[in-house]
Design a protein around this nucleic acid. Structure first.
Lengths: 333, 333
DNA sequence: CTGTTAGCGCCTTCAA
DNA sequence: TTGAAGGCGCTAACAG
């Protein structure tokens, strides 16, 4: 069980200095004479001493690890965010404990608690339904939290996103301008504020500006999966939709393939716009037009923000909005 | 900085017992009178006490976290493995520290060391080039390691895979049987044993069985990315290949789309078989025929194996081979 | 510039 | 069944 028996005492003894001195050189403290620093460094090298981060964490109350709660890494959207997070974390000498929540509130609460018990220095949360219990837990902890690609209606937490309302509104407007009077809105759970409050709002605003009445039958609430998308074609046709604004790329790919399989031509007979601009948009045929968001950057900026919070540096704006774009590919006319 | 000030002492005092007793109930030790157990539990609840995992880790030399080294979570193949790992880890009350190595040896060594310094109880490694330095580090540590979806030529470490040689051989044989005399082998870095030693071997064996001479010009060593795939069409045509066995799904999708864009019909004019059976195979058009491997399970089984190693349970077979299959979809005739 | 001395919060014998 | 006491390996004052 002794994975690593050489402690700071061993190198102290071997170098004929006190452990405090060893600690100093290990931590890059300036107050060490170059000569003794070298001596210590040599012994460290010779003994292959590796500081025990756990002990260090207990003594310093800092673990240099942050918790990352994500619905599902298997979804490219989150995978790309996670990658941005990890890269910046590494840059700042942090590691991430990655946990999948399936957007399940119980799991989120549970996992949050185990992360806190592990004394993570900060948390990055992805998921958009901050219900009572979870919000309570968030409020109780003093550990810094930032949301990545996740909105916070209450405006309490630091977060980085794009302007979902504006982006959806623009895209839907374009769809309408191109002659589509019946544009479907296909989204993930409406309970999630990002869908129910933000994106839906953009959708409604676009309709309103165009003087088109809002028709609930054109709103399809789904579970954001590819499979579900493939099954949607009949329903979409049934309500005479000629285009769809979709909130997830895998879901959109499913819809598109479902259309193609039913011989509905995209984009000629049906236009599709998706929302996340993951690499998937380029891999399918036709390539999917999408709202573009800097996925990697959202993660990276979120992590950067978290480092500031953890180091008690001032942050000028809690609600970071990164620029979005509209990328026309082949699923729209 | 006092994220959480209630310690085991607080609940001990409040419950009028010793901290040792509190420790016992927290750890489910049987030697506690039911009455005092309840008393303690009540106080824990009341004070909202949460054991400090770091302190616990220092005292017990167990952190209940494992390190996971992966080339890139952004690649669906690894994302799906990672998901399997996390689910089983959670099941056994472990968390995972996820790190991206980009298959870069320096990063791998570095990250391995920080994981060890953080006293992870075990490590799951993905990546297929175990070079000198990395192998050395692996050998030095007593921390259990298992490879997931990664081969080990030296047969030293526990690992879970499929039989790459046989799978590739079968698929290439099918390709040949269907009349393809010039089958390209498009793979990731040949330095990686999984490509250079295993898959290539299967490819060669299939050729040999069919009495077709091995032609080096038909072997395309790439970086496993979609983009690279899209660029390969001219080169593939130049060597008169009529089919390709590809070792990565994103890469294969790129090749396929590159073909389509150049008006080469898949599968009529060019057949493609890929290797990982990620969800991507179903999302592209035509859907890609693939060797099927139980991705999630490879991760899950690897993690399960690791728990055994960590708990010093016996493992009957270090080299676990999960069953593979051949899924004919639309990219082959 | 360097050493001494307390802890950090918990687990784990050893006694009682 | 319970308590006392000694670490786990390191950081962080505080002296000197």
């Amino acid at each position: 069980m002794d994975k690593q028996t050489i402690t700071i005492y061993d190198v102290a003894r071997e170098a004929s200095v006190s452990m405090a001195t060893v600690s100093r050189v290990v931590n890059g403290n300036a107050n060490v004479k170059p000569a003794t620093r070298k001596k210590v460094l040599d012994v460290i090298e010779k003994l292959d001493y590796r500081p025990n981060a756990v002990a260090r964490g207990l003594a310093s109350k800092k673990t240099t690890t942050v918790g990352v709660i994500v619905p599902d890494v298997t979804n490219m959207y989150f995978a790309q965010l996670a990658r941005g997070i990890d890269d910046v974390a590494t840059m700042y000498k942090y590691n991430i404990i990655l946990t999948n929540s399936d957007s399940n509130n119980e799991k989120e609460v549970k996992v949050l608690n185990t992360l806190l018990s592990k004394q993570v220095d900060g948390i990055i949360f992805m998921g958009n339904e901050i219900n009572g219990k979870l919000r309570e837990e968030f409020k109780r902890t003093k550990t810094p939290i930032v949301f990545a690609g996740s909105v916070d209606e209450e405006d309490l937490y630091a977060r980085v996103n794009i302007d979902y309302v504006a982006a959806v509104q623009e895209e839907v407007k374009n769809l309408i301008d191109r002659g589509n009077r019946r544009v479907a809105f296909v989204c993930g759970p409406l309970e999630q504020a990002i869908n129910g409050k933000f994106r839906l709002k953009g959708y409604k605003q676009a309709l309103k500006s165009a003087g088109i009445p809002y028709d609930e039958k054109l709103v399809f609430e789904t579970d954001d999966t590819y499979k579900t998308g493939t099954l949607l074609q009949p329903a979409l046709m049934a309500v005479n939709a000629t285009a769809a604004m979709v909130t997830d790329d895998e879901l959109a790919a499913g819809i598109m393939n479902g259309m193609s399989d039913a011989d509905v031509k995209v984009p000629d007979d049906f236009e599709i716009i998706t929302s996340n601009d993951t690499k998937l948009t380029e891999m399918v045929r036709p390539k999917m037009s999408s709202i573009t968001q800097p996925l990697y950057d959202i993660g990276a900026v979120a992590m950067r923000l978290l480092t500031k919070l953890m180091h008690n540096e001032p942050v000028d704006e809690k609600n970071v909005l990164l620029p979005y774009g509209l990328m026309k590919r082949e699923s729209t006319k």
